[in-house]
Amino acid sequence: MATIKRYPWISHFLGSPTGYVVHLQKGAVRHQGVGQAFWFRPASSVLSEVPVDDQELPTLFHAITRDHQDVSVQANVTYRFVDPVSVASRLDFALQQAGPATSGGKEQVTTIIGQLCQSHAIDHIATTTLAQSLEHGVSELRNLLTEALSADTRLVSTGIEILGVQVLAVRPESEVERALQTPVREQLQAEADRAVYERRAVAVERERTISENEMASQIELASRREHLVAQEGANARREAEEQAAAGLIQANAEAERRGIGATAEANRIRLVGEAEAAREAAAMEAYRGMDQATLLALAVREAAGSLPNIGNLTVTPDLLSGALAGLIREPGAAATGGK
């Protein structure tokens, strides 16, 4: 931004790197260019500063399509002042006494470019339908406005160069836009619902597969359990049969052993009986020729072997006399009987 320092009867101007200054004194150009610094008399000087950097001009306007639909066009125009002297001579970029330039020049440029953009865009949109404007309007308007503004004689003669035009949006009214968005939204919602249904179907299919796998596993486990029970029953039955066979064999062996033992015992008893009988017979045969006293003595001896032990024996005179008397009588009696 240029600065002006005022002194009595004279002032000093210091320009900026983006401002092209034109110093006119009594109608003649005394100084011009970028970044100028000079002294001047305010009473006889006119200063104009034209920006030489790129300028951005956003614009927004409405147009009517062929099917009587209102659309809004949002665009941005980039331009530059390539001939600052011509611009300063045709537009108001004069510096005030305080220093900064007036805004009249920029407002004039904004009005000129905005009206040109609106005029060409309205003419073009009036030949298209709403669907065509929304589908191809951005690219067509960008090319159209770039060519029209670049070739406009007023801008060229003024020293304004159009660097580029960007059409940002072509939009219908809000109600129409919502109505146009409804089918797409419905389609997107339908796609979303379809995706949800497919996801649910996949989940159900997976659950069914899992259930079938679990059921198959349970059936397999039940079958294996059945085989296990059958095998255990067969094993138990076989074990019982083996135990029964073993018991039978043991019982037979025990019976045979007992039979053998009984036979042996019977044979032993028989042999012992026969031996006892033979001994008794032999004894009786031996006793047959003995006298009564001898037999009595043997009987007493046999009985004495069966009696309990006698610690002390008291022989009285009566007992002794009786036994002696019997002994004395026995021989006599034996003799008498012999006779």
Rank of each mutant, 00 (worst) to 15 (best):
I219V: 13
A244L: 15
A222I: 12
V170L: 00
E186S: 07
E177G: 11
L228R: 09
S157M: 02
V156A: 07
E212T: 03
V156I: 12
E198I: 07
A179N: 09
P183V: 04
R199L: 04
A201K: 07
E214G: 00
R208S: 02
Q218L: 15
G159P: 05
V165W: 01
R206Q: 09
T158S: 03
E161S: 13
R178Y: 03
A190G: 08
E220H: 08
A179P: 02
V196Q: 10
A244R: 15
T209F: 06
A201Q: 07
H227F: 10
E212M: 05
L180M: 09
V165C: 06
T182D: 13
I219N: 06
Q189D: 14
A245F: 07
E175C: 00
T182E: 15
A234N: 15
S217C: 03
E239T: 13
R178N: 10
L188S: 06
E241W: 12
M215P: 00
A222R: 11
A195L: 07
P172W: 01
A236C: 09
Q189E: 14
A195W: 01
V196A: 12
L221Y: 08
I219W: 04
R185N: 09
V204D: 04
V229W: 03
V156S: 03
H227S: 12
V204C: 02
